[in-house]
Design a protein around this nucleic acid. Structure first.
Lengths: 350, 350
DNA sequence: CAGCCCTCTGAAAAGACTTACAGAGACGGT
DNA sequence: ACCGTCTCTGTAAGTCTTTTCAGAGGGCTG
């Protein structure tokens, strides 16, 4: 307190000043103008090497880091993108998030993830907030309604949709081809000899559920008859729906996703129903848990590549090239222990 | 195009101006100064109602939203906090993330999550980046070494540690009391009659693994003998380690977490070992999958409250009140089907 | 009726950067 | 020797908001 100087003024002269070290401090330290410091820090070139070195040293000495807020304000960009996910609890999402993350980081962008907690309103709010703060937005399987989606799409060009196709709004999209994946799965079951199955459904109005149902209905054309039992996409829903599904004595139970299958499997085992001897059971998504179930789950894998593709789209959008691509990533059946040929007497009984 | 005005100047007069609607545009629209607009938008009061109404209408008409970057620059705050997680793939983390999220949102903060993909270096980079951009940082079970952690702690006061206690650096911390949770679990097994168990360990240098081991070693004092087999905290690690653990013919296998237990369960069933008849199996964390396994997993639950507590700490830090609390959240055994009394002859054999 | 205080409003500074533009110096060519 | 050009650097404007301070006006009190 006795240093004899007003601590307020010329704080940038000494490093003891309590104010943040800013670009001016570095400029003073290196004896150059702030423009030069800015040029050196951003690596844009155009500064002679000896001077640049001097600036770098001064910056390092002072521990200077450009202010994110000021940079964003000046450039109008943050080099961050957001991703809103309906529910982090589904391990399926994680695979995609990881993919996007890796790809984005490789391009010098950072990904921030927000969880909407299964609430469409939260989804909308988070989306608008992210959009307003970051450079771009990836929406994973959004449950929000079309008007909400349209509002967001109108507010920005930097929007990518994952696993939901909304033809009435032109948004660049990457989605797993649930329909054909499901069709292939049905084909697999049919080939094993199944003729009567039950579909344990997913979230009512979700696009993926609609698509998977579409695949299932098409399977009717080659002779696989599938009844529908609605569930909800979660383990609990699978557990709760399993008994009803089994009550119709199908030879196969097709679950909306692996989570549902997992829950159903547990319930079936409680009921003394053996999988796959008494009934075949299938999932969708191929989450890590799927291959470790007992039996391991026959499922449909397709997420690989989705994340990278989504980032590719976003990257081009950020570069200012409008996209209107809607691409479907193929999905393929992964056969594991939970599906088998139905017992002969069950097929014969039909 | 014949409106007779140079479109460049006074762009704020018409809504056709291509530049962003800023506070000046609203001020002009409402016939007030930007200071008044700012006051109205931030709800700070001090503006007469009729005028405020006029401003609100003008803002709505123009679709004005304050610039996030400018706001951050002016206030020095973002009202966002970041959380870095080693791996989103572990469902356990999700419970905590969700909790923090809910609590933060309730206080008007937004949570951004970043995944370090099990890479300590990425963890450090993400942390520094977030710290630099956002108002605070929550570090979930960080794997980074102490110097890295110390560097971050020195750069900010707004840091909260979850599930890792680092006594040599004074960081506010919330952690599950793994040690006593594990001790309680051992007590449960001991009470059932178990005397010889194996611990299928977690990530080598993680704090939680160290603590759980500590609990296990203490259990020796009341007569539960536990050998150690290192695994790695993942399903695959549990699967891979199960056979080795079983080879010592314990009456119980204590897994580092539910993921490991899940993998081990699968492998044991493949080997024809029945759980819990031939061996008891326990997890830790009580992830949603745990109660749906077959058998359902006996585990240790403790995460409830961790997220909210962590946010509480962060909130006080953000309010400028230094904290140096290191609090341990109690964890308790949840008994389910995977643990039972050992078969009499096995105990007798000892 | 004067003075005081209170409420409301606006001007202007502060916050930290980027970047267009201009200018200085060096160097080569004629 | 002069001019043009090129490279490097600095000045200053622009980005958008918050907030302090001062001032205007009105009402109340003594």
């Amino acid at each position: 307190m006795t240093d004899g100087q007003s601590p307020r003024k010329r704080a940038q002269t000494s490093r003891a000043g309590s104010r943040r070290v800013n670009i001016q401090a570095v400029a003073d330290g290196a004896g150059v103008s702030i423009a030069t410091v800015s040029r050196v820090m951003s690596g844009k070139g155009g500064v002679s090497e000896p001077l640049a070195e001097r600036v770098r040293r001064a910056a390092a000495e002072l521990g200077y880091r450009p202010s994110f807020a000021a940079q964003s304000l000046a450039t109008g960009a943050t080099r961050m993108v957001g991703m809103v996910v309906p529910n982090l609890a589904n391990p399926y999402f994680y695979d995609v998030i990881k993919d996007v993350n890796v790809a984005a980081v490789a391009d010098g962008y950072q990904l921030a993830v927000a969880d909407a907690n299964e609430d469409p309103r939260a989804e909308t709010e988070l989306s608008e907030s992210f959009l307003h703060k970051l450079d771009g937005l990836l929406l994973m399987s959004p449950r929000m309604d079309v008007p909400a989606l349209r509002a967001i799409a109108q507010a920005t060009d930097h929007l990518v949709l994952l696993n939901r196709v909304v033809p009435e709004v032109g948004i660049p999209t990457i989605a797993i081809d649930s329909m054909s994946g499901m069709l292939e799965l049905c084909g697999h079951l049919h080939a094993l000899g199944h003729r009567r199955a039950v579909y344990l459904g997913g979230p009512e109005h979700s696009w993926s559920n609609t698509e998977r149902l579409r695949g299932i209905r098409q399977a009717g054309s080659f002779g696989l008859d599938v009844a529908e039992v609605s569930a909800g996409g979660t383990i609990a829903a699978g557990y709760d729906g399993a008994e009803k599904a089994w009550s119709t004595r199908p030879t196969a139970i097709i679950c909306h996703n692996d989570l549902v299958a997992f829950g159903a499997l547990t319930r079936l085992q409680e009921l003394g129903v053996r999988v796959p001897e008494d009934v075949s059971l299938t999932g969708f998504d191929d989450i890590p848990f799927a291959s470790y179930g007992s039996p391991a789950l026959t499922t449909v894998a397709g997420q690989s590549g989705v994340g990278a593709a989504a980032w590719g789209l976003m990257k081009r959008l950020l570069a200012g090239h409008p996209q209107n691509e809607i691409s479907l990533v193929p999905a393929h059946v992964v056969v594991r222990g939970s599906s088998a040929a139905p017992r002969a007497e069950l097929v014969a009984a039909e």
